[in-house]
């Protein structure tokens, strides 16, 4: 699939939205190899005992999912930098929405900057960030 052309992109362009799979099954597949098999990620009850509303998606998975969103939009692109702020937990078994928009273009090195967000079902921002992407 061909990605967007740098020349055609404009500040304000939206990337296709993405609904990531953050089911418990998926999280358990992730945490083992990542060395993050803690109860707060894999067990709702254990997470509640820690004072959390339920099991939470590891922040590093949220960051990885957002990088994946960029690649689905622009196959072959190279992410030079991705900076994510975990403002509030994304809950396992919830239905978050990942969004991204172009916020800057640098003609000198043909990179774009994008905003990244993960919101929950109430539209509240849980994760936000930015990335610089070479197209």
């Amino acid at each position: 699939m061909a990605g967007p052309s740098f020349d055609d992109l404009e500040v304000g362009d939206e990337l296709p939205e993405f609904k990531p799979d953050v089911s418990m099954e998926r999280i358990r597949l992730f945490v083992g190899p990542s060395g993050m098999a803690a109860g707060r990620f894999t067990d709702h009850e254990a997470a509640r005992k820690e004072g959390l509303p339920g099991a939470i998606v590891p922040g590093i998975l949220s960051a990885g999912i957002l990088a994946g969103l960029i690649h689905r939009w622009a196959p072959g692109s190279r992410i030079r930098q991705i900076d994510t702020v975990f403002r509030a937990p994304v809950l396992v078994d919830s239905h978050p929405l990942c969004r991204s928009v172009v916020t800057d273009k640098d003609e000198s090195d043909r990179t774009v900057e994008v905003d990244l967000t993960i919101t929950n079902e109430q539209g509240e921002t849980r994760v936000m960030g930015t990335a610089r992407v070479e197209l």
Partner: peptide, 9 residues
Amino acid sequence: GSDAHIVSH
């Protein structure tokens, strides 16, 4: 006020 921390907010 928006309390924006990223451009699109």
